Amino acid sequence: MLFEKYRHIVIEGPIGVGKTSLAKLMAERFNAELLLEQPQENPFLPKFYEDSARYALPTQLFFLFQRIGQLRDLAQRDFFESMVVSDFLLEKDRMFASLTLDEEELKLYQQIYQHQSPQTPTPDLVIYLQASPQILVERVHKRAIGYEQSITESYLAQLSEAYSRFFYHYDGAPLLIVNTEHLNPVDHPEDFDLLLSQIESMKGRREFFNWSE
């Protein structure tokens, strides 16, 4: 039923919340095509975490062109023959830009974004994963990616707040907001099954899943 109802699923959320791991797990379960961000290909990202003011713009523009390219390739194929699971939503790129760029850089970024006029496939479902900044810090440290270890709780708090504002206004696709404080669908199969059941039972365009043990 999930494959028939949702052919293109996007999983989103702040750094460390587990969106990529969940996307991989879901793609494996449903034999779906997996479309992932490639942060390791961005040469400016490690420098951004060391000096965000200096490297915010090139970091942001690299991600913008990378994401547009990935989604354009997807749009040109008949991907409806198979399910597609992705770990990024292009629209959130502007959210990051608003958070990291200064006023003049943001104007330049917006001009470039508008000039590109990206036409990308609309997801059938967006799953937005939430967690507190404290938990995000723990998860980031646990996965031990070198350049991420300098990420502060303050930055993750700002990022989480930006995501909350973004998805508060988001209406581009059906949205499931999932609190992952007590839900671990990646490491606990029973939690993954709970999440799938919640997805399959969705009736409206916006629902919340706040599982408590």
Rank of each mutant, 00 (worst) to 15 (best):
A157V: 01
D93H: 03
N184M: 06
E33H: 06
L176E: 09
F208T: 08
F166C: 04
L90D: 03
L183C: 09
R143A: 01
P133M: 12
Q130S: 13
L106G: 12
A32C: 07
H141S: 05
M95R: 09
A27F: 04
Y55N: 08
T152K: 00
V126Y: 05
S164P: 00
E181S: 10
F167R: 02
Y170R: 11
P185D: 04
E181H: 07
K5S: 11
N31T: 01
K203M: 01
V85W: 01
K92W: 07
F96A: 04
M1I: 08
R54C: 06
Y109R: 12
L89Q: 01
I68N: 07
D73T: 12
D78Q: 06
E213G: 04
E91H: 15
I199Q: 04
L176W: 11
H182I: 01
E37I: 07
E200N: 10
E161W: 12
R205L: 09
H115D: 09
E12G: 03
P133W: 10
H188R: 12
L101D: 13
T59H: 07
L2H: 08
H8T: 01
Q158H: 09
P46W: 02
N31G: 09
Q114K: 15
L196S: 02
T59E: 02
R72I: 03
F166S: 04
N31Q: 11
E181Y: 08
E91W: 13
K47G: 05
I15C: 13
H8Y: 15
G16S: 07
R139F: 04
A162E: 09
S160Y: 02
I9E: 03
Y163L: 02
F3G: 03
L74P: 00
F167M: 01
P123L: 13
L61S: 03
E103P: 01
V178T: 06
H188F: 09
Y155F: 14
S98K: 14
P133T: 05
E37N: 05
S98C: 11
E207L: 02
S154G: 10
L90Y: 14
T152L: 00
Y168S: 10
L159Q: 13
S86K: 06
V137L: 08
P14W: 13
S98P: 01
S98H: 14
